[in-house]
Design a protein around this nucleic acid. Sequence first.
DNA 1: GCCAACGTTGGC
DNA 2: GCCAACGTTGGC
Length: 153
Amino acid sequence: MAHWLMKSEPDVYGIHHLEAEGSTLWDGIRNYQARNFMRAMVPGDLAFFYHSNTSPPGIVGLMEVVETGLVDPSQFDPASKYHDPKATRDKPRWDCVRLRHRRSFTRLLSLETLREQFEAEELAVVRRGNRLSILPVSEPVALRLYALLGESA
DNA sequence: GCCAACGTTGGC
DNA sequence: GCCAACGTTGGC
């Protein structure tokens, strides 16, 4: 079982949306590196939910991967901002995973705190200018995150 | 294959 | 709004 960190802007899709929905299709990923991380996910993996492009940014919850290898439907939708004219039903370019809500943390684990606790080599989200929306989290780092959140692993 | 221009992300 | 980082595109 692996850990991940997944970013979303709370105005667009925040932890409260996931709480209300229970589970969601994590679609709209249009970066090959992030896509490849999704392809490496296995049902049962856990993902820290990170609020980006907000103040203050940070980790707000925990999700569980429930389904992988799904075709991202938004690539075929001309009305979607994620529409990809190069994608066809026969040859989709983008896929996505389904995630289920596990926890909403009572307090934010802020980027500021993450910067105090982790080096960029350990947890890439603390690196200035990092734009990758999905990141792997090593087990030692995951354990330290749980400790900082006051959670048992 | 190189690389400059451009676009996007995201913190501040 | 600014700007750093960096992926993508397109001319050659």
